[in-house]
Design a protein around this nucleic acid. Structure first.
Lengths: 200, 200
DNA sequence: GATACTACTGACAAAAATGTCAATAAAGAA
DNA sequence: TTCTTTATTGACATTTTTGTCAGTAGTATC
């Protein structure tokens, strides 16, 4: 008996929506299963479209990966720029600011993005992050009395730690039988204590 | 004109040597170009053998990757176990011990290994590291007066930071116009100051 | 030497992944 | 409605990567 499957009705999106849909699917693939899972067929399937649709919008699977990198970097930069450092209460301000920073690198796939970039030698794409760091250093921290030079180094330190903790903290913590957030707690505690000692 | 190339004389190794030769080639590929470069043809070429030789010894390219993971983890564990913490001079001992730890994660491809494991959800293979951490905590640090419970957390903290710094420190540092070792310096400085404050 | 063992290899086959193309169908414009 | 545009798609072609196999060639043993 021959069954005639009606082809599923097509969803027609605007080019921007379609690209965004595909990139979102690719992003969750990246975060959940790593960069190797960013194959044409898998991305298309996750996005609910045909392989050819992905190619129509991006031209190649490589271009999809690069576009995803740039979108995630953009989101990350936005998250960093959104960090508020109230000028009035320096001590607690640092704490909340740093927590937001660590959040940005833990909850979203930012740490995985960073590892991905690092492992694929695409760190040249991080120019945007550099600009964000400098802008944050000037506008957000300079007005707390810390000289801009040192502010940049503090951000370098914080970002390095945040990325490392975001990427390896949970698994290393559970590895030695601690709750996953333990590495993060320890790091934040140390970082805050260190900043405290600097201003004293 | 037809030139008759004599086939290059074969090199016949012991199975162990051959496996080691292949894994070493794969390791330098991983460290220099990332996990994607661990393709059968590339690994074989780097090792100076035919594709079929790699398969003869490992069965599949996947098995090569897993064997490489385990060998690198083994080397890493050895490096960690080799860290000496002299019982007599606690302060400087910490400094040199930590420097060795950071070295282990920076010079060799350990940080890249960790990122690779993380991105491929192969962290289950880190059981060996867990055992090493516990052993170091007991034998190397416990005799400096620090309770074993806290020793484990200090190692968790140190290893997390070392991995993060080893992986991202250089590129993040240069990204904001600092020398590549700056992130490492800052991190070590903070870590040592923090440990100092704990014992006071 | 002669023989046995097996590391090694090139040629080929199979599978997986990417990319092409002509045709289809959704949505707005005429 | 009819027309135009183009996002979408299945079928197919190409490329890349992995794996198979039968034969070759070192090395040790007899």
């Amino acid at each position: 008996m021959s069954i005639k499957n009606k082809p599923a009705p097509r969803i027609r999106r605007s080019p921007e929506e379609s690209r965004s849909n595909i990139l979102s699917a690719a992003e969750s693939l990246l975060v959940q299963q790593g960069p190797q899972s960013l194959r044409l067929a898998d991305v298309a399937k996750a996005a609910g479209v045909a392989n050819a649709t992905v190619l129509h919008h991006f031209g190649s699977i490589d271009a999809v990966q690069k576009a995803l990198m740039e979108r995630m970097i953009g989101d990350l930069v936005d998250a960093i720029m959104a960090i508020e450092v109230p000028a009035d209460a320096p001590a607690t301000a640092r704490a909340t600011g740093l927590k937001t920073l660590f959040d940005a690198f833990e909850t979203r796939g930012a740490a995985r993005l960073a590892a991905w970039l690092e492992l694929t030698d695409e760190t040249s794409r991080l120019t945007l992050v550099r600009e964000a760091v400098q802008e944050v250093a000037q506008k957000k921290i300079a007005n707390t009395g810390v000289p801009a030079e040192m502010a940049e180094e503090l951000i370098l330190l914080s970002v390095t730690l945040a990325v490392g903790v975001g990427l390896f903290g949970p698994s290393l913590s559970t590895l030695i039988g601690k709750p996953p957030e333990r590495a993060r707690e320890l790091t934040l505690q140390m970082l805050l204590a260190y900043l405290q000692s600097l201003s004293a």
